[in-house]
């Protein structure tokens, strides 16, 4: 117990001193996770919108597949992407393995289902009257879609934040595709795993604090925006 308290104390000191290694790890984490969340949102939100609004054959099957993909383990994605981008893979010539791009590819695959599924449920909950109102007021298909997305904005934002939380906290993809190279692909989670392997807890605990603080800050920000809109 004393050991944990000591680590916690040293971790706070490390944070206070703004350790350059720590800053580097945090910035790599944020950069990779934000990129993958942005890309996945650009794909997942329109896809969710389309699936929620259109009837097409195989829609139920697609929904089932998407729901199954919500439970996709990061190591499976790691393995799958590795098979494509390793030197022996068909995309091997691109030299993607152990780069931030490789991590982003894996993370995008991880969270597209999350964003899509939550967008579908957010859009489906929006009252049918919004669509009819926009149309009768003369809106075209795109303007109507915009109205509905605007009404569902908080639920969609929650989906994006959940997805960000998922990628910033995952370790499997970052480790397998990034390789935990110091200064390049070392993220908060891979660094923590490494520190654990070394039996050193100080940096690990410090990173844990940062990770939780980021999530906490994001949620406070989200609540603030939502609260302002409700007044």
């Amino acid at each position: 117990m004393q050991f944990l308290l000591d680590s916690f104390h040293s971790a706070l000191l490390l944070l206070w001193s703004v350790d350059p290694e720590l800053v580097e790890i945090v910035s790599v984490s944020l950069k990779v996770s934000s990129s993958s969340t942005l890309i996945a949102s650009l794909v997942g939100v329109p896809a969710g919108f389309f699936i929620a609004f259109r009837e097409f054959p195989g829609k139920r099957l697609l929904m089932t597949i998407l729901n199954t993909l919500l439970a996709l383990p990061t190591v499976v994605i790691g393995l799958f992407v590795y098979a494509f981008i390793s030197r022996r893979g068909i995309l091997g010539v691109l030299n993607l393995l152990y780069t931030q791009k490789a991590m982003i590819i894996g993370q995008v695959i991880l969270i597209i289902p999350i964003i899509t599924v939550f967008t579908i449920s957010a859009i489906s909950r929006i009252d049918e009257r919004y669509r009819k109102t926009a149309m009768t007021l003369g809106a075209n298909a795109l303007q109507t879609a915009w109205v509905i997305i605007r009404e569902a904005r908080f639920a969609i934002m929650a989906a994006v934040i959940a997805a960000f939380g998922r990628v910033i906290a995952e370790v499997g993809i970052s480790m397998m595709l990034g390789g935990n190279a110091k200064g390049f692909t070392r993220t908060m989670t891979t660094a923590m795993a490494l520190e654990y392997d070394k039996g050193e807890f100080v940096l690990g605990v410090a990173l844990g604090i940062v990770l939780l603080t980021i999530s906490f800050g994001l949620n406070i920000f989200f609540n603030y925006i939502q609260g302002r809109a409700r007044v």
Binding site: D127, R129, Y130, K132, T133, A134, M135, T136, L137, G138, A139, N140, Q143, V147, R150, E151, A229
Partner: peptide, 29 residues
Amino acid sequence: RRRVVIVQQHPIMFTVTVGKNLEFPLNIR
């Protein structure tokens, strides 16, 4: 549709101000 408009039984307002709701059709046009 741009020549005819329906006011529904329980009309729904966009979650913006009253003024912005009225601006919507003007903006579109």
